[in-house]
Simulated scan of single mutants.
Amino acid sequence: MKQLVYRGVFVCSIAMALLVAALPAFAGGNKSNANLVLPVEEQTTQPHSQKTIGVLLFPGFEMLDAYGPMEMWGNLKHAPAATWGGEDKKVGIRLVTIADQRGEVASNQGPKTMADYGFEDAPQLDYLLVPGGLGVIPLLQDKATVNWIRTRAAKAELVMSVCNGASLLAAAGVLDERPATTNKMFWKHSTDPGPKVKWVKKARWVDDGNVVTSSGISAGMDMTLAVIGKLYGKDMAAWLELLTEYDAHRDPSWDPFAVKAGLVRD
């Protein structure tokens, strides 16, 4: 029995060593780590700190806008201590979904998602994520939603948007006089609500400190990994890429869709 325990510890140690050795190279662009073993841990102890991330839901929200970033944030609980930089560096991530009223919210694609909270009883948020979708259009005139975004964004450490979720941030005044980007295929409609915004036509995402906006739909995952890398280290972002088998774009200026939409020249 002791031999089995020792052997298990030895194998885990090798796996951890392989991950720690490979992550810096992977974060720098080398993805040829054929022998990489990716350790995954369950959080069994209470982290020293916790961040609550609120994801706004509304009828007609774009599923990948919300679920792509949630996939990345939600998997941080499985990251090993070594990737955090030590057990004392671990951060607990609490993901909550919020709508005007608690309950089911139908996405643009049809499937419904349960909103954990309504506007009235939503907890304090450290980070706020606003997805896009066709459902944004009627919400631009919805005072309750726009006012809630304005109030919560002012109290949050970090505000993020995906696609034309930036239109809602713009309508709430969150992006006034700030650089931001949004969906390139629906550029005019998405930017109209923000005449005071410094819209960036060519950008996968725009990081303006405590407000980060991203381009259309899939760009939300690239933005999220960039934000996680900034907050918790490039090794963490690289670990998430491996875990999700996602080939992320790390250059925020990479944006062929701005060219295809005729916003800029190649």
Rank of each mutant, 00 (worst) to 15 (best):
K230V: 05
A226N: 01
L231D: 03
W205G: 10
G209V: 13
D207S: 06
K234P: 14
N210L: 09
M236C: 12
G220Q: 11
S218V: 02
W205M: 07
A238S: 04
I217H: 12
L225N: 03
V206G: 10
N210K: 15
M221N: 10
S215P: 06
G216W: 08
M223I: 05
G216K: 05
T224H: 03
G216F: 09
V227H: 02
D207E: 10
Y232H: 15
R204P: 10
R204D: 02
D208P: 06
T213E: 05
S214G: 11
D207H: 05
N210G: 13
D222W: 00
M223D: 03
G220A: 08
D222K: 03
T213D: 03
G209S: 13
T224D: 08
D208R: 07
V212C: 02
L225W: 01
G209R: 12
M236H: 09
V206Y: 07
D208S: 12
S214C: 13
A238D: 03
N210E: 14
A219G: 05
L225I: 02
A238L: 05
D222S: 04
D235C: 09
V212Q: 07
A226K: 01
I217A: 14
S215A: 14
A237I: 08
S215K: 05
V206Q: 07
M236V: 06
A219R: 03
D235L: 13
M223H: 02
Y232T: 10
V212H: 04
K234Q: 15
V227P: 04
R204Y: 04
K234A: 15
K234T: 14
M221H: 02
S214N: 12
T224L: 06
D207V: 05
T224R: 09
I217V: 15
D222Q: 06
W205T: 05
K230C: 07
A237S: 14
D208C: 08
N210M: 09
V206W: 02
G233M: 13
D207K: 06
D208L: 11
S215T: 10
V227W: 02
T224S: 12
G220E: 10
D235E: 15
K230D: 09
L231P: 01
A219W: 00
A226I: 00
K230G: 09
L231G: 04
V206K: 07
N210I: 13
D222C: 02
G229V: 01
A238N: 06
D208H: 08
L225Y: 02
V211G: 12
S215W: 06
K234R: 15
G209W: 13
M236A: 10
R204I: 00
A219L: 05
A219T: 03
K230Q: 12
S214D: 11
R204M: 11
D222I: 00
G216E: 07
S214Y: 08
D207M: 04
G220D: 07
I217Y: 11
V211I: 15
G216I: 07
M223C: 09
M221K: 11
N210P: 14
A238E: 05
R204A: 10
W205A: 06
K234G: 13
A237P: 04
G229K: 03
Y232W: 14
Y232N: 14
D222L: 04
D235W: 12
I217P: 12
G233K: 12
T224N: 09
D207R: 01
S214Q: 07
